[in-house]
Design a protein around this nucleic acid. Sequence first.
DNA 1: AAGCGCAATGATAGCGCTAACATCAACAGG
DNA 2: CCTGTTGATGTTAGCGCTATCATTGCGCTT
Lengths: 364, 364
Amino acid sequence: MGDSSDSRPEKSAGGSRDNPRATGAVRLSDVAAAAGVAAMTVSRALNQPELVSERTRERVQRAVIETGYVPNRVAGALASSRSRMVAVLVPTVAHSLFADVVQSMTDTLACEGYQVLLGLTGYQREQEEAVVETVLSRRPDALVVAGTRHSSATRQRLEAARIPVVEIWDMSDDPLDMLIGFSHHAVGAAVAEHLLGCGYQRFGQVMADDPRSHQRAEGFNARIKAEQATRPQAGIKVTTHWADIPASLAGGRSGGAALLARMPDCEAIVCGSDTLAMGVIAEAQSRAMAIPDALAVMGFGDMGFAAATWPALSTVRIDGAGIGRLTADHLLKRFETRHHEPLHDVLDIGFEIVARQTTRAHRS
Amino acid sequence: MGDSSDSRPEKSAGGSRDNPRATGAVRLSDVAAAAGVAAMTVSRALNQPELVSERTRERVQRAVIETGYVPNRVAGALASSRSRMVAVLVPTVAHSLFADVVQSMTDTLACEGYQVLLGLTGYQREQEEAVVETVLSRRPDALVVAGTRHSSATRQRLEAARIPVVEIWDMSDDPLDMLIGFSHHAVGAAVAEHLLGCGYQRFGQVMADDPRSHQRAEGFNARIKAEQATRPQAGIKVTTHWADIPASLAGGRSGGAALLARMPDCEAIVCGSDTLAMGVIAEAQSRAMAIPDALAVMGFGDMGFAAATWPALSTVRIDGAGIGRLTADHLLKRFETRHHEPLHDVLDIGFEIVARQTTRAHRS
DNA sequence: AAGCGCAATGATAGCGCTAACATCAACAGG
DNA sequence: CCTGTTGATGTTAGCGCTATCATTGCGCTT
């Protein structure tokens, strides 16, 4: 029956704004009136164009432009229970590795019309708990969180939310749902293995005081302990300095100084991040210690600058952008298939030791 | 009542779960039933507790915990036309300066229950246009965007949205609404002034190829041109190299190499960012050029690492975190007063030249 | 007793959209 | 002719909240 429902005398684009609760913005029904179709048809023309005839689709498109319509996805989300938002919880974005993840995830999701709701957990559990709650109140279609160690309250909330959850940047045997990351313990062990292979024996560590750095340090120490057991006479030893978080170049520099004070005969310093490593190098350079001859330095992260410093930094490469892309792709696939049951699936993307000029050559 | 073990999802939970469109989550009305009050009272107890008697407030709080209620702010936003979200549009977060802004803004807003909807514009106008549209469809309460140069379509949409808009990280005489930033042209001029004051005459520039770097380069060149006019015999000259974006240490290094090839007698290189500067320094060190004696280097941004490198980087300090905090505070104040008219207000937060060790001392 | 102000609470009616079903025209086969 | 099928469109009834106004109870004045 077409247009009998709308009162004809209304003045064109202005519409019936007599209701005090209306926002005054152009609505779907305004576009529908302009195109001479029902609101539902406009909704379909925009969201499932294949269900609408070409003629109508064009009429609607013209009406959208004419009225300057911007869809209200808040209302859409309420009606359809799909918000097309993905919550991303990371400790900080002021750290290149997490920034890479957020960047690539945002880019990938944007292509499919999804958007990122950013939450910063600041390396603290209680902050994570609060952020999880506020973020879930927006009813995101999925949640991505860095790390696998959550308070039980957080775990409960995440399970109750019944949305896909991806833990990233870590490994665990017992993921909440999907897990995309790498083993920090294995990184530490591999670094130890590599440096032992280079012939170093007296090690320092300058690590940030966060859970994942602790895991890497543990992995490192475990491998070293094994070597000490095998070759007790070799004089292998380790001293560790914990730097404040967030890790900074200045923290690396003072950490390096502190470490060298405690262990003057240190041959190689393993750092919790490339940034800390740069700080250690700066400290060494200010003491005119030759690198890597007087002191070897190993970073973590292979951040953009690592390859281009002088001397070029030996480090561990993590593909942060890859994690972001994989995570986004995985989520998009699940949205498509509407598969909302937890998977308990683990994807280890691994890491790579990149030997450059701040460590001496490996005796292969 | 204990907790519900996860193996058995919602079964009864007193309510009309027979409706196929209900999400199955705990609703306000479920809490109301548990507390023995009306839904509206629960809403008030949570959002305007001062309007509710202490006795009722406590009953509601207990019911919230008992039921595990997580508010649905999508519905809340639709009903109240207040989403408590702020859209933040920056070119990238994989750049420490913008990451700082995003970080501090997110932190400050989170305290008041506001959340950040992140949009990445990738330095490209058409991408900005698309991002603005999708972001506005979420009906954020305000929008923050880096830069002042927008396409006319973008400007129109932003004006039509009738929400506070803050442009940051730049200066303009004609802001859309609020503007918090600094003059890139003035930065360039001040750097030129400073380096001339140090006695340098043959300048190189390694700049990223983005609009704001262009403005700084222009400011620099303008000041140099004035000096050339004043002292035509002095042999003052400038060569500029444009590096690809996003700026990287590697880009700085190759840019430095390219510049030195074109201008072997260059005395001082001004860089578009600290990252580029680090690259130039790395290139100089690989050529055993002493810094600052054989070559002076000036950065931009005073990123965390600038003070701690060896030699410590002379640079221009921008208070990114300050911009983020100021912006957030400003918005929170406007939300409080519900002042939604554009202000056309400009706040210049300035900058500071930080002379460290990569430039020689200023002849004061 | 009636009236008034005030604080606390409840009932109602949407916000702008979409899921689900209803309708309708056009056409095929029996 | 009827019936069934298909594709395009329309109608209805919410999604889960909150703005708004109505109602209630209580202490106080007149």
